[in-house]
Structures are given as structure tokens and as C-alpha cells.
Design a protein around this nucleic acid. Structure first.
Lengths: 250, 250
DNA sequence: TCTTGAACCTCACGTTACGTGAGGGTGTAG
DNA sequence: CTACACCCTCACGTAACGTGAGGTTCAAGA
């Protein structure tokens, strides 16, 4: 166990002001774990982790009060929270992509026609404002049920299996994308489809402990929520595999 | 020219509160263009466009005062500003991607070793805080020089040419990525390299009116700013083309 | 041991960007 | 001409800190 961190060190290493840490102390959001004789605040490494949570949740739009209540909830699970943060950050990226697309659309119309399309303007305006409400995140992702889901997955599936599956998907997707031009009837294409089906089954098996989670993920796919994230299978990829499987029937 | 918008309509169509519009009126940031006899505010379509700017710049972290000064600057160019916003939104996405990656890293280490790596924790903590400073954006993108650059490009390059070039790049990149496995000496690979060089030259020619802009973009490439954005050429793509060109010498 | 400068402490008021009523006028459909 | 949704102007409240003022503590060096 390393040394104590003084307030200035903690602030510097996390990129916040000392006043901010004072404020969090006042609110009871981040209390120093000890103090010197003279009353200087001393923080341990656990504080660092808690501060990471606070700052991430804050940039996701939660109020300090909401964060405080969340972190002190008895069912709060740090690992689950980190997974949720990954997920919400990914979603935020897609919202930004949509906003950017809306502006591109607006610009293109203007440059082509010479005047503004007011509907496109409102679309661009509302698009950029998406996902700034913290309460939504709170309800959607940090509800006790979701929290439990994510925690349960972490408990019941060995970490090595999750990682292995992720790696397999990465490799398979790379292969698929590099071979989209293949004839669906070719043996290489068929082999890819086989790997796809096996890996799908293995994934399903791993997440079996909570069928609800799989369902949630399935819905998100249908919403197109993962479109644009190249670590995930895309419409394109599905389409290719489908073509290969169809060729199998004929 | 369509009807006037009453304050409630404008608020609803842009997803902000009436109070917010009142506030912007007080600040002189967004003044109604007319009023009824009774003193009700009436907004025209120009207001919609100005509001789009305000809200986008606000989510990018600018203060209302800064936005006000920016929008009233004599050299302010709306088209240029929209282009800049696209660019900054893209950058913001990458920052989020990096933050997400930092959390993934943190999680993976924890799941593998069973304890926390404090350096990874601080990395995750600082990563999520990147790009929340509005002043940086102001200096980096809305400096008079940058503004002029973006405006000049819009003036001197026909919109159709810009769009055509973007389309060409999209198609070329798709082809390159689908054919990375090709032998660099094959005629198909050589053809791709030819298209790459022609398109590079065409792009350079288009942006010729402002060599400074090309230089800025070049620097950003070297910073890796576009890595992860698949609409732009990636390290991978450059590497492939380079291999093909090298094969040409031998 | 004593000094000295950086780092820290506690008030306490200031700021930004609105939220939230209170109390009262306006617009227009029937 | 009335009913009701919509709008007006104060004016105080709030969240999340910023910004000194004035004094104390810490740790390294003489």
C-alpha cells in the first residue's frame, strides 16, 4: 500500500482543482480517508477510484447529489458501473455522430440549393442536445435491475471467457471484412459462416445466466445502436453471413 | 417566408425551455425579431439558425458570453462555423473513444490480476475530462485565422467539387480496405495505388487556395487525430499504399 | 533547531446558467 | 364576449464551483 496523497497531488493527478475537492468534501461526496495532525486532508488510493466514478458520472450529466446517492447505494457494484460507463460512453459517441451527420446534411442542402431547410436546422439543433439529461442515464442504466444484471454477468462468467470471446469476435470480424468479396458458395466463405455460428453459440452460452441481458442487447441491435462501432458486428457483416447461409440451402 | 414563431413554439422545436430563451433575450444573445402589440416575443427563421449555433457551441463547452462575442464578431462566418462544429464534434467522439478505451484497459487489468493499477485509474480519470474546456476550442478553432481559412475554402472551392472528392475518398477507402490482402505487386493493388495518387493530387489542387489549411490538416494527421474515423484514411490504409508503392520500385 | 517558502486551512462572497413560482396581461377559438 | 392556453415581468432559489483574504502547517535546508 502506497503513501497518502495530499489534496494537491490528488487534484493534479486527476486534473481537477483543489477547490473542487474541498467542495466534494463539504458535500460528503469524497471524504479524505485521514488527516495530518494539523488538519491537512490525506487521500488513499480508494479515493482515486471513487473520484474516477464521480468525474465520469459527472461528464455523463449526473448531478453531484445523484452521484452521491448512487455511489452510496448498497447494491452499487464498481465493476458493473465501469461496464455501464463504457456502454454509455459508446452511446454518447453515436449521438455525437448523429449530430455531426445532421450538420453535414444541413450544410449539404444549403450548399446545393443556396438556401436553408428549416426542418434540417431544427434537426441539427435537437440532435446536438440529445443525451444531456443525466436522469435518463440514471433510470436506464443505473436502475437496480440493470446494475444487478451487469454485476451478475461479471460474477458468473469467468473474466477470461469474456475476454476470449471478445478477442474471437475481433478476429472473426476482421476476417469477415477482409473477405466480403468472396463467393458465398466458396469453402472459405462457408468456413467463416461456421466460425460465426460457433462463436454466436459460445457467446449465448456464456451470457446464459441472464437471458434478460441478451434480450436487451438484441433490442439495441435492432435499434441500430451499434452501427458504426466496428468492434461490433455491423449490418454489412450480418448480411454477408446471411448470404453465405442462404447459399448453403441452394 | 413562413410565419413568426412564438416563444413556446421555438422552445419546443429546439428542445429548450422558455426560461432559457428569456435568459438569452436578457443577455442580448438571442433577441426576438419582432413582437406583438401586447409585447409577446416573435422569432423568425433566422433566430432558429442562431439558436442552433448557440446550442451547439454551448454543448461544446463555450460560455454564453463567449458565444455572444463570437456570433457578433464581424468576421463570423456561419458556413465556416458549421464546418468547424463538424470537426470539433468528430474530435469529441475520439476523445470519448479514448476514455472508453482507458476504462476498458482498467477493467481488463483488474479482471486479469484481481487488483487495481493506479496508473490506469488516473488515466481513465483524466481521459474522461479531456476536451471540456471551451476556451481551448475557441482559440484552436475560432481564431480569426482559422475562421478565415474555413470561410475561404467554402468560397473558392465549388461545393460540388468538395462533395465529389469526399465521395471518391469514401469509395476508394472501401476498395482499399476490401483488398488489403492483395499482393502489393498485383495489378489490382497497383491500380488502387494509382487511384490513391490521383485523388490525393485532386484533393491538393482543390484546397490549393489555402496552403495553410492543408498544413493544419497534415499536422492533425501526424497527431493521429483522425485515427478511428473510418471516413478518413487510416494508418493501415497509408501502410498498404506504401507497400504497394515500394513494390513498384523493386 | 530554526527558518522559509510552498502547500494547505477555513470562511465568505461572487458567478454562470438557468429553475421555479407569483401575480397578472394577451390571443384566439368557439 | 368569454374561456383557456399561452405569454409577460419581477424576483428569489440553486448547483457547482471560482476567487480572494487572512492565517496555519509541512518539509527541506542553513
Amino acid at each position: 500500500m502506497a503513501r497518502w496523497l495530499r489534496i494537491g497531488e490528488l487534484a493534479a493527478s486527476c486534473g481537477v482543482s483543489i477547490r473542487t475537492l474541498h467542495h466534494y468534501d463539504e458535500l460528503g461526496l469524497l471524504r479524505p480517508e485521514a488527516q495530518t495532525e494539523g488538519g491537512h486532508r490525506l487521500y488513499g488510493e480508494g479515493s482515486l477510484l471513487r473520484l474516477q466514478q464521480i468525474l465520469t458520472l459527472r461528464t455523463l450529466g449526473l448531478s453531484l447529489r445523484a452521484i452521491s446517492e448512487l455511489l452510496d447505494r448498497p447494491d452499487f457494484d464498481l465493476i458493473a458501473s465501469l461496464r455501464i460507463q463504457q456502454e454509455v460512453l459508446r452511446q454518447r459517441q453515436e449521438e455525437l455522430a448523429r449530430a455531426q451527420q445532421a450538420i453535414a446534411d444541413l450544410l449539404q442542402y444549403r450548399l446545393e440549393t443556396g438556401h436553408w431547410d428549416w426542418q434540417r436546422v431544427t434537426r441539427a439543433t435537437t440532435a446536438v442536445r440529445q443525451g444531456e439529461e443525466g436522469d435518463v442515464i440514471m433510470e436506464k442504466w443505473y436502475s437496480p435491475e440493470q446494475m444487478e444484471r451487469f454485476a451478475k454477468v461479471a460474477e458468473t462468467i469467468p473474466a477470461t471467457e469474456i475476454e476470449a470471446i471478445q478477442n474471437e469476435w475481433t478476429m472473426l470480424l476482421a476476417d469477415v471484412r477482409a473477405n466480403k468479396h468472396l463467393d458465398p458458395r466458396s469453402s472459405e466463405a462457408q468456413a467463416l459462416a461456421d466460425r460465426w455460428q460457433e462463436l454466436t453459440e459460445r457467446t449465448t452460452r456464456a451470457y446464459q445466466s441472464d437471458p434478460g441481458l441478451l434480450q436487451v442487447i438484441g433490442e439495441k441491435y435492432r435499434e441500430g445502436a451499434f452501427e458504426g462501432d466496428l468492434r461490433m458486428p455491423q449490418q454489412d457483416d450480418f448480411a454477408f453471413i446471411q448470404r453465405v447461409l442462404d447459399a448453403r440451402q441452394a
